[in-house]
Design a protein around this nucleic acid. Structure first.
Lengths: 135, 135
DNA sequence: GTATGTGCAAATTATTTGCACGAAG
DNA sequence: CTTCGTGCAAATAATTTGCACATAC
């Protein structure tokens, strides 16, 4: 009830969410900006950032830490994990794992009020493996 | 064998690793810089960054993505996970979990060559819960 | 002596923000 | 019409880098 803010449905907001949902890429803000610009040529990068932040904070998208200085975004709210390529930065989904991770146990151990978790595998994607082989 | 680079043991490098090992904090580069500066007042922040990067890439420390624009570092190489406070940014260890996560399965599903994984719980730390209660 | 590392400052990169104008409701 | 959102440009914040000098080996 503290954050009852009226949110308007602007064309920018709608297109950003639509394109984020379409993407299999987990795009960065800049990548999404390029895509959105094809439909809204006058949109600014700042607006993309503002809306991604809003979507993340209102739970309509996830902001993914990458350890590379830029964040990626994901509008798929299903429980799933990610795998990131340390060479090219690409990020893919991982669905196969059972729901193994028990937030409640961690709450008990640490005293934190746990809201969720993020599991990320790190490795080298098939395309980048190819490139190594060719050398 | 590609990255056989001779590494010298400078006092800066030694003190940075010592202080990182002592810290329970998972410090950011800037936080570690403050600590190290007490022993080496003339050290520069750039040197801290360079050495943290080196330690991370040579496997002597882990670089932890936080989703907040700054990275944290951890010299504890034991298998363990982390829990991060969304209010104050603090990061603590989580040891209780069994080793549930199967890198091999993910390699099979995705075709990635998996090097490891990072599991991070997200929530509100005890101290920040207190602060909320007092309001 | 020579290659590697450091301090310093400037450069780069990602992201955020102030402000005047525009559009949603 | 009033409030919230946008475009633009400037501001911040974290990190990286070039260069001349210092130091480990």
């Amino acid at each position: 009830m503290a954050d009852t803010v009226k949110q308007r449905i602007t064309s920018q907001r709608r297109v950003i969410l639509e394109e984020l949902r379409k993407s299999v890429f987990h795009p960065t803000a800049a990548e999404l900006y390029q895509v959105v610009r094809r439909r809204l040529p006058r949109i600014s990068l700042g607006t993309v950032y503002r809306n991604l932040d809003l979507l993340a904070r209102s739970g309509m998208a996830r902001k993914l830490a990458t350890g590379t200085g830029q964040s990626r975004f994901d509008a798929n709210l299903e429980a799933h994990y990610h795998v990131r390529c340390i060479r090219c930065g690409r990020m893919d989904d991982v669905f196969s794992l059972p729901e193994l991770i028990l937030d409640d146990e961690v709450a008990q151990e640490t005293g934190y009020e746990i809201q969720g978790h993020e599991l990320q595998f790190v490795g080298i994607c098939p395309a980048c493996q190819q490139k190594s082989d060719m050398k």
